[in-house]
Structures are given as C-alpha cells and as structure tokens.
Amino acid sequence: MNRKSLAYPYLIWAAIFIVVPLLLIVYFSFFEGGQFTLQNYEKFLEDYYIKALFRSIQLALTSTIICLVAAYPLAMILSGKQMSNKQVILLLVVLPMWMNSLLRTYAWASLLENNGVINSMLQALQLPTIKFLYGNSAVVFGMVYNFFPFMVLPIYNVLCKIDHSIVEASYDLGADKVTTFRKVILPLSMPGVITGIVMVFMPALTTFLITRLLGGGKVMLIGNIIEEQFTRTRDLAFGSAVSMILMVIVLITLTFMSKKDSLDKGGGLF
C-alpha cells in the first residue's frame, strides 16, 4: 500500500460529511421545489438581517481588537527571558480552554446576573448594583473571555522564535527600544498576529452561544439567525442562504488575511 492510498478513507469521509452537506446547503439556498430562485437571498436584504450582519461584524471586530491589545503585551512579557514563572502564567491562559465553553459562559451568566453573585456581593456591601447582562458589551466580554487564548498563543509562539541576536543587532545599529519594537519585533511577529486575528474573528463572527447566554436574546447576531432558521422556524432554505452569505464573508476575510500574511513572509496558518 502506498502512502497516497492511506488518504482515501479521509477523502471518503470528507466527501460524505463535508462536500455533500455543503452542496446541500447551496442547493437549499437556491432551489425551491426544484425551481431556481433568489428569493432567499432577497429576504436577507431586509433591514433586520442586514443590521444583524453588521452588528456581528462590529462585535467580532471589537472583541478581536480588545483581544489583540490585551494579548500582545502579555505575549511579549511571557516571551521575555527574565520571566521565571512564565510556564505557570501560560498554563493559566490555556487552562480555561480545557473546559467546555458552554459551561464557562453559563458560569459568567450566573456571576453577572442582576441578582447574580457579583451583584449580591455589591448589595451586601451597600453599593449600587450594576446591570451587566443582556447587551452588546456583555456579548463582547464573553467573546473576549472565550477567545483570548487563541490570540495569546500564536503571538507568544512567534515572539519566542525571534532570535535574540536580531534584537541585539537592532540595538547595536542605534535603534532604541521603541524603534526596535516598531522596526524589528512587530514586523517579525505579524504572522502570529494575523493567525491570532483569524482565530478570534472567525469564531466571534459565527457564535450564537455567547449571544444567547450573555445577550439574552436581545442581541441578534448572524449566528443566532441561522440557528433560529434551523431550530425554530424550520426555514431551511433561508437558513442555508444566510449560511452561504456568512461563508462568503469568512472566505473573503481569510483570503485577505493570508495575502497579508504571505506579504510578511510569515510561516502562517494557511
């Protein structure tokens, strides 16, 4: 048996579980009773859905930016050689990933509820309570919390791989710390940054779980709309059309990012 034939089982698996469903979705979205139609896509142009799409992109972008701004300094500190307990901190960053995200998001919901743990404590201390839940900011918080490790790890990995003598060479040639960061460290870490952006933006764009638990049905994102079509209203055709639209957006983003990645000569994700 040659090496190639080892791949056949996977090809068959991929055909049955990836290609066929995908084709079905395409079919469902374009055909109604055997008749070609664009009516499902036209329906998406309604204000309600377009708003949901833009809200999705906006929230996903916001949480990606927050993750990036918070993760880069952390990754930088962790990759520094003077850090002695970095393994512990790294473990703390990664640890939540080993738990089910549904569980973790539930936990946050009960912590942040109007009469949840935090507000009860505030009440006990005679302080005014805060309304955390059911809004855009709670959803963004959930996204940042859930996807933060996916931003830290790739940046950390790339920073660790930068040869320290390259940084020293920059100092040697007259660059101070800020200039060295700007001209050497940041450009060399771009592959990790791009991987991190993709790994946070994609799941944040498509999530419906975080919105449901922390948005309380008030924040409708594109993921929730798809979920609704398949589970509640049973409008498979429209659900498929929205899925297609989301898929196209994801593909465009990926292509854009991978092009940027190859420009930076990074050994990136794709």
Partner: peptide, 18 residues
C-alpha cells in the same frame, strides 16, 4: 548599546529576515 560608537558582527550574522 545604541549609544555606543561601536558596531557588532554577530556569530550567526543576525540579519533582519524581513
């Protein structure tokens, strides 16, 4: 180092790969 009138050729060259 960046304030010294000294420059260095490093063991592994340390050229900027980007």
């Amino acid at each position: 180092p960046y304030k010294r009138k000294i420059n260095t050729v490093f063991q592994k060259y340390a050229l900027f790969p980007h």
